[in-house]
Computed example of a mutant assay.
Amino acid sequence: MWKHGQDDFRDSFSSNKTWSLIRDPRENVAWYCVNWFPQGVPRFAIFAWLAIKDRLSTGARIRNWGLMQPCLFCGEPVETRDHLYFACPYTYTVWIEVVGNLFGDAPDPDWETTLERITARETGRLSAILLRLAFQVAIYYIWIKRNNRRHNHISKPASQLCREIDKTKRNRILSTKYYESPKLYGLMQCWFSTRGAIIV
């Protein structure tokens, strides 16, 4: 017999019920919806989760291992998560281009403010989806480009990185088959509308 609840035993096994019984339940964090949503991509979500938890191996973290690593984009002596996303002039330029006018006004370079604004979901449903997706994709690609600079000595201009992020977002939007879903209908049009008038 398999335990399904406190006093509930059945002859079938359920990994969901077992997980619920053995885990230590906690309240959902405020940024849960920013990281885990149906239109997200697991690969990007994992990197965003690591960034939100400040677990990426930035210069500030590897300094504890006896290594010094400045920001590879602008030369800032201490590369922290908050600097990399999006206080660095290079990454802030990318973020402005990627997010377009999804916020309704200029994005803030401060990490905590950015996360709070995305969590608040003050925009419409489609804009909220696009904003969360832009956040995840930007975190992923900035980290990949940062590592390419560090390990392979390959640097690309911000405009090229923006094009890669834009293409990835468009591909993800297409893969959702938004045109067949009443909840997602107009998602691509909404994305294109953010490209026209970027507020700086």
Rank of each mutant, 00 (worst) to 15 (best):
C190E: 11
M188Y: 09
I144M: 10
V98F: 06
V94K: 05
A128M: 00
G186N: 00
R81V: 00
P70Q: 12
H83Y: 04
K169L: 08
G186Q: 03
W143K: 08
E122V: 00
G100S: 05
I173F: 05
A106Q: 15
R63Y: 06
A120K: 14
I154K: 07
K167V: 01
K145R: 14
S175A: 15
S155G: 07
V98Y: 03
D108C: 14
L187S: 05
V137H: 05
I139A: 00
A120E: 11
T168S: 06
I139N: 05
R125G: 12
I118W: 07
N147T: 02
A158V: 09
T123G: 13
F135H: 00
T93D: 11
T114N: 15
D82L: 04
L126M: 13
S175K: 15
T114E: 13
A60S: 11
T80A: 12
H151E: 11
G59R: 03
T91D: 02
D166Y: 07
M68L: 15
S57K: 13
V94D: 06
I165S: 00
R150V: 13
S155I: 02
T119N: 06
Q160W: 14
D108E: 15
R172Y: 05
I129K: 03
R125M: 14
Q69A: 11
C88A: 09
R146I: 02
E180Q: 06
T168F: 03
W111D: 04
P109Y: 05
L102R: 13
Q136N: 08
E164Q: 08
L174C: 10
H151D: 12
G100L: 01
N147Y: 06
G66D: 01
I129C: 08
N148Y: 01
V98C: 03
L72S: 04
C162M: 00
E76L: 09
E164N: 10
E180L: 11
Y185E: 01
T123D: 13
G59Q: 00
N152G: 08
E116I: 04
H151T: 12
P70E: 03
V78Y: 12
V98S: 02
I129L: 08
I62T: 05
T113S: 11
L72T: 01
G196I: 13
F73R: 14
S193L: 10
V78L: 15
E116D: 14
A120F: 09
S159R: 10
P70F: 09
K183G: 04
T113P: 08
F192R: 05
C88E: 02
V200S: 13
N148T: 09
C190W: 03
K156D: 12
R170H: 10
Q160I: 15
A106W: 13
L187Y: 01
P107I: 01
A158C: 07
E97G: 05
R172S: 03
S181E: 07
C71T: 06
L130A: 02
V98Q: 00
